[in-house]
């Protein structure tokens, strides 16, 4: 059984993952749409930039975020001036780091689903009197839903597992930024912390497995040949 402290860690992780996904979803869908349907100079570069967090060492991503959101950073200064808030050492910062790290996987799943939508159906809808906006809301979006959900679930799982960028960006603050992986790391640094590490690791594995299975099932609903795994 989990201790109250461990339950707190699990709930914080779920909160960070949920907020990260809420932030990521619209951005990821817009990027996925542009990459799936757009033809413009620099598309390859945009594609590479979106996927960058997947291949760059997470500590680098965390450091870049730290520089950007520091009190005098390009993002931190206006946030402080306009809203009087800072995300440093706070769970909102952990959610931001998780969102950035989850973006490539989320975009990838959504892009596949948008590419899988038969554009001949969209043409048929246009000839039936639907303008571009109506075609998007009534044809493209509903047919992309399995991929959007798959991307969201996958991104959520990635967010919960985020470690390197989070610890670099917002440190390892109990109750604020100590999510599951950071708590496991902390437990392993303490004598006698193995039992806690085991329990939290078990929960991490179970959550990740459930998310992967769910996203794969959703991706398969998009049709033959589409897999997240």
């Amino acid at each position: 059984m989990l201790t109250p402290e461990e339950w707190g860690i699990v709930l914080l992780s779920l909160q960070v993952g949920a907020v990260a996904m809420a932030v990521t979803l619209p951005v990821a869908f817009a990027l996925a749409w542009i990459l799936a349907r757009g033809t413009f100079p620099g598309k390859v570069l945009l594609d590479a930039l979106v996927h960058l967090p997947l291949v760059v060492p997470p500590v680098v991503t965390g450091w870049v975020l730290l520089l950007a959101f520091a009190p005098h950073g390009v993002m931190g200064a206006p946030l402080q001036a306009l809203l009087g808030v800072s995300v440093l050492f706070r769970w909102t910062g952990a959610a931001l780091a998780a969102a950035v790290m989850a973006l490539p996987l989320t975009v990838r799943a959504m892009r596949l689903s948008i590419e899988a939508v038969d554009q001949r159906l969209e043409s048929a809808a246009r000839t039936l009197g639907a303008g571009r906006a109506r075609v998007f809301w009534t044809i493209t979006l509903p047919l992309s839903v399995p991929g959007i959900l798959a991307g969201a679930v996958l991104g959520f799982a990635r967010s919960i597992g985020e470690f390197g960028a989070t610890i670099t960006f917002v440190s390892n603050v109990p109750g604020q930024t100590r999510t599951l992986p950071l708590a496991i790391y902390s437990a392993l640094q303490q004598p006698g912390g193995e039992a806690m590490a085991w329990r939290l690791s078990g929960i991490s594995v179970a959550l990740s497995l459930a998310a992967l299975v769910a996203s794969e099932v959703l991706a398969r609903r998009m049709g033959a040949g589409h897999h997240v795994l």
């Binding site: 001949r120 043409s123 048929a124 246009r126 000839t127 039936l128 009197g129 639907a130 303008g131």
Partner: peptide, 11 residues
């Protein structure tokens, strides 16, 4: 645009 042509298109 296609949506304003009122063409009944059976593909």
């Amino acid at each position: 645009p296609p949506e304003r042509r009122r063409a009944g298109y059976v593909f």
